[in-house]
Simulated scan of single mutants.
Amino acid sequence: MTRVDVGDLVRIRVRHPEAVAEAAARRRRRPLIGDHGRLMIIAADHPARGALAVGDRRFAMANRLGLLERLCIALERPGVDGVLATADILEDLLLLGALDDKVVMGSMNRGGLAGAAFELDDRFTAYRAEDLARLGFDAGKLLLRIDYDDPGSLETLHSTARAIDAMAAHRLPVFVEPFICRRVDGRLTNDLSAEAVTRSIAIASGLAGTSAYTWLKIPVTDDPDDMTRVMETSTLPAVLLGGEVGGSVDDQERAYEKWRGALQLPTVQGLVVGRSLLYPVDGDVAAAVDTAVGLL
């Protein structure tokens, strides 16, 4: 794996914290969509919401050295356009020089941690639009979870709309990841039925004073055959989110096939995938990333 020296990163952060802004200022930028017309983004915003597990390894993503090394491998693979993460991870990658000529997508939330009493109080707790503009980053991403039985979802809708407005004011794309969710035995779950995903797309597409800079980040439905009808709900460009993949090689192959089919739809412009590529079943990050790129 690409070698990362945690000691060097810590020394820079202790002695010269201004190095983060300096690295952002000299980063070589690129258009959001490259020559091939598709978008392949590696997602690594899981730790900031306390989601550290990969399969049966409860704290796999808690090892920052391992995560950074895996990210560096993924970002070096041909066809990988960029990365989605929170400030702590993106700043490490900036200091490592790993973000030149890459799309840098800042995660804007979430405060509603899984399993917490305040789980649906999804306030924006990471990047703001002004932060992304100041750093010269290329896009933002936010999560929109809607529970029809939770009055707090109205505040989530309102704050999401204003965040989209703020991003549009800076002419920055924002990737909205909408879910209809509900509680089952006290646990919040995302509804991945075709009906629920269709409704979430319709709601997200109509938020804010403009949709000019809005992209959608959409899960593949429980039945992949429904995706054609689901994606007819909006003309906004969309990317597929990878989601959790089972712990076997067969599970990984089934995920690839689901993505392959949905990528043929006209509004689907690419993939945003995290754990299943950074922590593949066979441990070969480069091969997993190359396979996903090949689907595009």
Rank of each mutant, 00 (worst) to 15 (best):
H16S: 07
E232Y: 00
H46D: 01
I12A: 04
V54K: 04
P219Q: 14
V4D: 05
T2F: 00
A53P: 03
E22W: 01
I203R: 10
S248L: 02
G111F: 14
I33Q: 00
L157R: 07
D100N: 15
E76K: 15
A24R: 09
V54E: 08
L271K: 01
R29H: 14
R134Y: 09
D223W: 07
M231R: 03
C72A: 15
R13D: 02
G34F: 07
Y127G: 04
A43W: 06
V245D: 03
R254P: 09
G246D: 04
V249H: 11
A62N: 00
R199Q: 13
D150R: 05
I180S: 05
R13V: 04
I164H: 10
P173A: 13
R30E: 11
A23L: 00
A117R: 13
P266Q: 13
M1D: 02
M167R: 10
W259A: 15
R13N: 01
L135S: 05
D226E: 15
G115R: 11
M227P: 05
W215F: 13
S211W: 01
G7H: 01
L113C: 04
G246E: 03
E244H: 05
A133D: 13
G152P: 04
D282A: 01
N109C: 09
V14I: 15
V10Y: 00
G243I: 14
V272C: 13
L296C: 13
R28D: 12
A129R: 10
A166C: 09
V245K: 02
Y127T: 03
T221G: 08
R183P: 04
R187E: 14
V245F: 04
E155C: 06
L296M: 14
A212W: 01
L93K: 01
T189R: 15
P78R: 12
R171S: 14
R29P: 02
A139E: 06
R58K: 13
V103L: 13
A288K: 03
G34R: 09
D147E: 06
R26S: 15
R128N: 10
K102A: 01
F124V: 08
A43D: 02
